[in-house]
Nucleic acid binder design. Structure first.
Lengths: 214, 214
DNA sequence: GACGGCCCCTGACAAATGTCACGGCCGGAA
DNA sequence: TTCCGGCCGTGACATTTGTCAGGGGCCGTC
């Protein structure tokens, strides 16, 4: 394959985090085909990343974004502070602009969507390990075009709560706000997203990756 | 690994269909580790399944449900009629009751969610190839409990159109119905799903896998 | 200190949404 | 045949939702 032998310090040690066991195992098989890579740890939850990394001391961590316990972005941030020498490559299903932005702010070294050809993954790992940044250029452009979230903290919070599809009264109860206030925040969010609807606003915000966390 | 050598008729020939190239390639790597399995085709769209299967004559096809062009269930049905001897194993991200039901009705021989351990996939392929049915028992029970979709054809159609978050007027335009009729179908769907909302009804129906096709 | 931005609340109004009672159509049961 | 039940379509009606114009409080920066 690509011309890389195991360096003088031995093969690159990898940690894999993905909530789908089948995908996790398949990625492990794929990466294990490369002689200079070795998978030393696998986890299925975001909150298991740091403990497992402490135990196994990987060189590079591949983190999915959508995970129970802790999303991959938050796990990346935690990993950066816990093991600063460990590089982070975020591997996600959805190429959402906000995801990339948040990942970079969290200190990730690379960002790859699951649409990329399988052959390129190992090369991305090597680049990240070498200290380079790896980012899908198309997605990077889109991220710059979309810009950061225009939503205020309260507005995102209300939109997040509105994902379930509950009525205003329900949201007001959960968030401990007046109904009028909830309506106001929703209205602001609808305006900022350019939506015509509460439902559409939720959809747009979600697609842009503005609803992470919480 | 598991005690299975290549049979007298050679290794089992596989076709992989998944829209995420990385996952597809990783699955290929995983399955290629087994000496009695060989991947002869990979496609990223549902409507490429049958043509590619005609060309390569696989023994077993692994189909993802969420795919562009044609969903995995519909592709399974098409494959059953085009190549009746080819077995079908549906591999999906979401273990939705309706998916399993529809897959079985479409003639699939097995149904596996991506949460299952990687080691079990090869075994599932062998079982399906041997003519056995492979179904996650937990999911099967849930499917029986949930029952078939209570929604009428029109109701599902309207709910599907409502996913985008558009207003009643928009839906009426797309479906060529009166606004009152659309509202009526939505109301019925809300009642049958036990939702309090159009948005909630969409969520529930989607989670149960009642919105496939179209 | 004055200003601006964000947050929280309120009340009123127009527009969209959800509910209901109704009629027509079709296919199976009596 | 007649009846019944399900699905489809429609329009009237009450409720909810989204918008707007306010008000006050809490930070920060200038």
């Amino acid at each position: 394959m690509s011309g890389s032998a195991a360096g003088p310090s031995g093969p690159i040690r990898l940690l894999l985090a993905d909530d789908q066991a089948l995908v996790r195992g398949a990625l492990a098989a794929l990466l294990s085909l490369e002689p200079d890579l070795t998978v030393v740890a696998e986890v299925g939850r975001g909150d298991e990343v740091v403990p497992e990394a402490r135990r196994t001391a990987p060189d590079v961590a591949l983190l999915d974004v959508e995970m129970p316990g802790l999303d991959g972005i938050a796990a990346a941030a935690a990993l950066r502070t816990a093991l600063p020498t460990c590089r982070v490559l975020v591997v996600t299903t959805f190429g959402r602009p906000g995801y990339l932005r948040r990942a970079m702010e969290a200190g990730a070294n690379g960002f790859v969507v699951k649409d990329t050809p399988a052959r390129q993954l190992a090369e991305a790992v090597r680049r990240v390990h070498a200290g380079l940044r790896v980012v899908d250029p198309t997605l990077a452009a889109e991220t710059l075009a979309t810009g950061a979230s225009p939503l205020t903290e309260r507005e995102t919070e209300v939109l997040r709560a509105a994902r379930g599809g509950g009525a205003v009264a329900d949201l007001a109860g959960v968030l401990h706000l007046s109904e009028g206030t909830v309506r106001n925040h929703l209205s602001a969010a609808i305006g900022k997203t350019g939506a015509r609807n509460r439902a559409e606003a939720v959809r747009i915000a979600e697609q842009n990756g503005w609803l992470l966390g919480g």
